[in-house]
Structure formats: structure tokens, C-alpha cells
Nucleic acid binder design. Structure first.
Length: 281
DNA sequence: AAACGGACCAACCGCTCACAG
DNA sequence: ACTGTGAGCGGTTGGTCCGTT
């Protein structure tokens, strides 16, 4: 399918989101929920395609996002999960509350990958580079070797699963094994009444909860950015990232801001829960 | 101070899957 | 069974920032 039909038929804005657009989208979703993404831009008064709105919400506006640098624990967890799951960023993100697949993917490509290579570890196989080369050569000879799935300690053996690759991929957080390991079956993350990504099915109660929890979007208020951006991961203070240019400039814009702190604390709780999973490894 | 290059990140593109009709 | 549409995902790109020369 590729490009959404809505993107073809209408003249829609592309590129970076303005504070006004963010505000519109945020206010709309916190008030009414998502429902159907394709109808969101129209109802929210945006000149964007639904896909773009969805992405903006998931990657940036969602109130339960953690933001800030990745902690050492998160970094380790990503490495372990990548070893087990490969480039299934969405699956990895499920295990890291408050982090988006895009964020993790970027972090992996820009930082972790290089870090591993520096340590002489092949980021694709998670094996020492020399060993990887040997395996590659062997593979080249036989060509019937099963996929090189590394089994991390404490994780279910995905390779041994009778499911197809696709099924495993799709199952994601529901993966279970006979061993009873619940690492991957653990739903570590349920932001705002059962995850807003499912909010196409958001019922009225959920919507009400969202309204109550989220309040009204606004870029005003002295502490808004601190509230939004500050977070802790298991007691470790994270150093804050830089703000977007418009975020910095937007301290003066109007509106109300409230309740981001609630989401921050929610993320913290979820982070703690998720750390249990990490400790099992 | 200007130019350059690498790093980072937000957003887009194109694909697959699920599901309704 | 087939088709159209929407959602979700991973790969890629382009813009911006920042350090170095």
C-alpha cells in the first residue's frame, strides 16, 4: 500500500511539527482518544495525514514518554533484547516503558552499535567479530545452517519455538515457552489504561480517564518542560537532552499546562516493574 | 569567524498484516 | 476468496546541532 490514500488526495503539511499543531493534536487526543487515525487530522483541524499524526503522538506527544538519555540499565536491556529479538524495535520498546521504537532504533544505530563494535562485538550477531566471521564462513559452505539465533541467559529459546518467524514477530509480548519463563510474556507496559496505541478501541471510560489524567495540553507554565523532561530510572538521575528549537522558543506561548508530572511518575513505576524483567536476565 | 564533517534525531516512505465488506 | 483500507513496523533520509580545523 505504501503511501496513505489521504496523503495523495490532499495537500498536506510535511516536515517538522509546529507547537500549534502539537497542541491541536494533543488536545484532541487527550479529549477524544484516537479512534481512527485517518480521521484524527480532520477532526483535530490539522493539515497532516493520519499516519503522521499517529507517529507524532507515539514518538513525541504521548504523555507517558520518558525522554532523556538512556540509563545504563536501559542500555544493557536493549543489547540483551536485541540479541534475542533482532531489529524488532517495537518488541524491544515494549520492554522499555516510556521509550519508543524509533527512539531505541536511533539510539542503537547512533550509539550502541558503535559501542559494541568498539568492544569487538558484531552488533548483528552479538558475537566477537572473529567468531562471527568463522560462522559466516561455515554458513557459506553448508548453506543449510539454521538461523544464528543466540540464546541469552534467562530468555526463552526463540529459535526452538515451533512458531514461524512471522508468528514470533507478531506475538511479541505474548511469547511463552514450556520452560515457563515469562520474560517476554510479561506485559511490562500499559500506559494510560491499556496503551494508547490500542486507542482505536478506546472506550468512553478510557477516554474519560485520559481526559482526567491528561488535562489540557499547553506549552505554557514555567515548569512544563522540566516536568515533561525530567525522569528517573531506578533511582538514577538522567541527564536531560537538549530541547527542540521550538520548544525552547515556546516558553512564551499561551495555554495551560498540567499533569505531566503524573505521567512521569507513571513511567517511573512502570520502569521499576520492567526492571524486574531485566534482573531476570 | 567560517567551513566542514560527523552525530543525532524527527519524520517520511514503503512494506506487511489484519480486518471488514 | 477477493479487495480496499487502516494500522503498525522497520529502514531510510534530511535537517540541525556541535565539535574540530
Amino acid at each position: 500500500m505504501g503511501r496513505h490514500s489521504c496523503c495523495v488526495t490532499q495537500k498536506l503539511r510535511k516536515g517538522l511539527w509546529s507547537p500549534e499543531e502539537d497542541e491541536k493534536l494533543y488536545n484532541y487526543i487527550t479529549r477524544f482518544g484516537v479512534g481512527c487515525w485517518s480521521s484524527v487530522p480532520k477532526l483535530a483541524g490539522l493539515q497532516r495525514c493520519g499516519k503522521s499524526c499517529r507517529l507524532r503522538w507515539i514518538n513525541y506527544l504521548r504523555p507517558d514518554l520518558k525522554r532523556g538519555m538512556f540509563s545504563q540499565e536501559e542500555e544493557d536491556l536493549i543489547i540483551v533484547l536485541h540479541e534475542a529479538l533482532g531489529n524488532r524495535w517495537a518488541q524491544i520498546a515494549v520492554q522499555l516503558p516510556g521509550r519508543t521504537d524509533n527512539e531505541i532504533k536511533n539510539f542503537w544505530n547512533s550509539s550502541l552499535k558503535k559501542k559494541l563494535m568498539k568492544q569487538g562485538i558484531d552488533p548483528n550477531t552479538h558475537k566477537p567479530v572473529t567468531e562471527t566471521q568463522v560462522i559466516k564462513n561455515e554458513k557459506h559452505c553448508t548453506d543449510i545452517e539454521p538461523p544464528n539465533v543466540i540464546q541469552p541467559k534467562g530468555l526463552p529459546n526463540l529459535a526452538a519455538s515451533p512458531q514461524t518467524e512471522q508468528q514470533r514477530c507478531r506475538l511479541g509480548s505474548s511469547i511463552c515457552t514450556d520452560a515457563g519463563e515469562n520474560f517476554l510474556s510479561k506485559q511490562a507496559y500499559e500506559p494510560i489504561e491499556g496503551e494508547l496505541s490500542n486507542s482505536s478501541n478506546v472506550n468512553s471510560q478510557t477516554k474519560n480517564d485520559m481526559i482526567v489524567n491528561c488535562g489540557t495540553f499547553s506549552w505554557d507554565g514555567e515548569n512544563k518542560l522540566e516536568s515533561m523532561l525530567s525522569f528517573q530510572f531506578s533511582g538514577i538521575e538522567a541527564v536531560e537532552r537538549k530541547q527542540s528549537p521550538w520548544q525552547e522558543a515556546d516558553h512564551q506561548s499561551s495555554g495551560e499546562f498540567s499533569d505531566y508530572q503524573q505521567f512521569t511518575s507513571l513511567s517511573q513505576e512502570l520502569s521499576a516493574a520492567n526492571l524486574d524483567a531485566f534482573q531476570q536476565i
